[in-house]
Design a protein around this nucleic acid. Structure first.
Length: 613
RNA sequence: GGUCUCGUAGCUCAGUUGGAUAGAGCAACAGCCUUCUAAGCUGUAGGUCUUUGGUUCGAAUCCAAACGGGAUCACCA
């Protein structure tokens, strides 16, 4: 219900035509004027609190006057009465009022609703914002190349992808970026295991998807590693020593050294196996409707990172220790000293992140750079931003870590070693299969051909999955119960999709000429209709707030609420068989906007809205 | 131990720039399909908003402490 404000406390009009129409803003302006007239006091629009009136009271919107009470030194109910009388007399949008303690319940004239609905109907892209000249990069997904994507990645991917859609909608120029972690000991582990155990197995001759194939050898490495540790321990070695001395681990480390020194054979294998993984990832992204504008590879950026660090050393922002290692001092910032280059000159994790950040900026010159990364890296991201600021890298202040909580199983964390990881491809398959099962049981689309059915199952399965992962506040960790799987009832994607299909059904059965109809009859609004219009009024604000807070859950909640309200409306009132021609026309218009908002909102979440289901 | 973070119905989550009697979904129970799609709707039941103290007209929301989860504090990535 609030309008966003800038530093000066002024209302910000992202797209003036929306806010001009907004019912709540109209009321606020009227209240502002009333306060001025009755009490000769200026009051900021942002200090005016307007809520929707609770159903148990009479009214449409409610002004809370407690805050004025302190400023004016008067009783809240007295202020409410005075303002109510003034508004009734002066403001032509108010038809009546009542006062309960400090709450001034306002009854709007019906034509306020009609006018609003007509105005948003004129907006062909209601919910879309004009370009704001700002460019933002959003990095998400960012997988390692040693194993397939799992359920935890899905939260990351859907968050990043939906956030990209949302910010684009809200007027930003968006660059979707993916940073591939393609180098390091983890990929060498898969490579070693493949060399030793695969007998030349590849995606073609096994039919196994490339990322899964490589992942299998990563698992195989760990199995072998465990066995070797055990036998070394049986021979009297300590756990710690055995972990260091296990031959297969030494081989992996040797391979990493070869990789870093540019050994052609090693590089060739590395490239081959990474390509298997990429084609697997590509397939997974594609079926989920995920895409990127810019790809970054850590194997490309770590060298740039080194350069930046060297430069920082000569600038005196960094310092060198006796062993030749390079450090940054973050004690002033309340942190510790952090290592940036090892004594032997090799880079560490954060070095390549520094390089990537600079490369990103050099290529795109964006004002803001969002990193969708799990909350276990909060500290790391804080350090990265501080270092870049310290090095005076441009737009370091524009870095934002969209930190999301881990997806956990009821039994706790997913652990690959314990085989409790839920694979992303399996999950998508399972959701599509569930969609199929539910659809077949209901038997509503028996006339669909095979292709239409495939599309529908895909739409519903992915809709359920995406909505499920986006409906929770990203900051909070969430628990996923695979046994119960994901429901298609209640607060879910398919529920919202279903509402869209129902509305679509109405329009299929209406005379297509209804848009040309006109009537001079009067239609009197009922509470359900008013409630729906109030919800539509809220939509641009929800989008704006969701964008500013990087919180897609707000949009999910809104869409569920809207769909729920619409379903309630539909069971109470008939559209096509309305009492009068005017009512029928009005309800068609209202339904049309609701359909648009549902479709538009879902599209931002990356979810399709089916015409039938 | 330091820092950060979370604690709301049996379960999963909303609600947190302080506002009326704290809301959804799932699970449970009772109803509603000759009427635009029942993947729906309505009702019942379910709460010491972890606890204690503070701030005030008013606290789930802000502050402090305690208790209980989680993350992190690597020359790993």
């Amino acid at each position: 219900m609030l309008h966003p404000e800038n530093d000066k406390g002024e209302i910000v009009l992202l797209r003036p035509e929306f806010n001009f129409m907004s019912i709540t803003l109209q009321i606020k302006q009227a209240v502002q004027l009333a306060v001025q007239q009755v009490y000769q006091t200026e009051i900021a629009l942002t200090d005016i609190l307007i809520n929707e009136t609770k159903p148990e009271f009479e009214g449409d919107y409610t002004l809370v006057t407690f805050a004025f009470s302190k400023k004016l030194g008067l009783r809240p109910d007295e202020i409410a009465h005075k303002l109510g009388e003034n508004l009734l007399e002066k403001a032509d949008l108010i038809q009546g009022f009542n006062v309960v303690k400090g709450f001034l319940n306002l009854i709007l004239r019906e034509d306020v609703y009609f006018k609003y609905l007509h105005q948003i109907r004129k907006q062909t892209n209601f919910g879309m914002f004009a370009a704001n000249g700002q460019k933002v990069m959003i990095e998400y997904s960012s997988p390692n190349t040693n194993k397939p994507l799992h359920f935890g990645h899905l939260r990351n991917i859907f968050l990043g992808s939906a956030l990209s859609n949302l910010l684009k909608n809200n007027g930003y120029e968006v660059v979707k970026a993916n940073l591939i972690n393609d180098r390091g000991i983890h990929i060498c582990k898969s490579m070693i295991a493949w060399q030793k155990f695969a007998n030349g197995a590849n995606p073609e001759n096994t039919g196994i998807k490339g990322d899964h194939l490589v992942g299998d050898y990563y698992v195989r490495f760990n199995d072998e590693y465990k066995i070797q540790i055990q036998s070394l321990k049986d021979a009297g070695m300590s756990q710690e020593e055995a972990e260091k001395k296990a031959p297969i681990m030494l081989e992996a480390q040797e391979m990493l050294r070869k990789w870093e020194s540019g050994d052609p054979e090693t590089l060739s294998l590395w490239k081959t196996m990474n390509d298997w993984v990429y084609s697997g990832f590509y397939h997974t992204y594609q079926r989920m409707g995920i895409s990127f504008d810019a790809m970054y590879y850590e194997s490309n950026t770590y060298l740039l990172g080194k350069e930046i660090v060297e430069k920082g050393l000569t600038n005196g922002h960094l310092f060198k220790k006796e062993d030749g290692s390079v450090w940054v001092d973050l004690k002033e910032e309340g942190l510790d000293e952090k290592l940036l280059l090892r004594g032997d000159g090799t880079s560490v994790y954060i070095t390549q992140d520094i390089g990537t950040a600079v490369l990103k900026y050099n290529e795109h010159h964006m004002q803001r750079s969002v990193y969708v990364i799990g909350d276990e890296q909060n500290y790391h991201m804080q350090v990265l931003k501080l270092i870049l600021q310290k090095l005076n890298e441009p737009r370091a202040d524009g870095i934002f870590h969209l930190s999301y909580g881990m997806v956990e199983l009821p039994s706790g964390k997913m652990k690959s070693r314990e085989g409790t990881v839920v694979d992303a491809d399996d999950m998508v398959d399972e959701m599509i299969a569930t969609a199929r099962k539910n659809t077949e049981e209901l038997g509503k689309v028996d006339d669909f051909n095979a292709e239409e059915l495939q599309t529908l199952y895909h739409t519903l399965g992915l809709g359920a999955l995406k909505f499920y992962l986006l409906r929770v506040d990203p900051k909070k960790r969430m628990i996923f119960n695979p046994q119960e799987s994901i429901d298609f009832h209640g607060f879910t994607g398919p529920f919202v999709q279903f509402t869209h299909a129902r509305i679509s059904s109405i329009f299929r059965k209406a005379n297509p000429d209804w848009k040309n109809e006109s009537t001079t009859d009067e239609h009197s609004l009922n509470e359900d209709e008013k409630g729906l219009i109030r919800m539509l009024d809220e939509y641009p604000l929800v989008l704006q707030q969701a964008g500013e807070e990087y919180n897609l859950a707000l949009l999910c909640n809104y869409l569920h609420h809207l769909a729920k309200s619409f379903n309630g409306f539909l069971t109470q009132h008939s559209v096509l068989k309305a009492e009068s021609a005017a009512t029928r026309l009005f309800r068609l218009q209202l339904s049309e906007v609701c359909k648009h908002v549902i479709q538009h909102g879902l599209s931002l979440l990356g979810v399709d809205a089916p015409e039938r289901m």
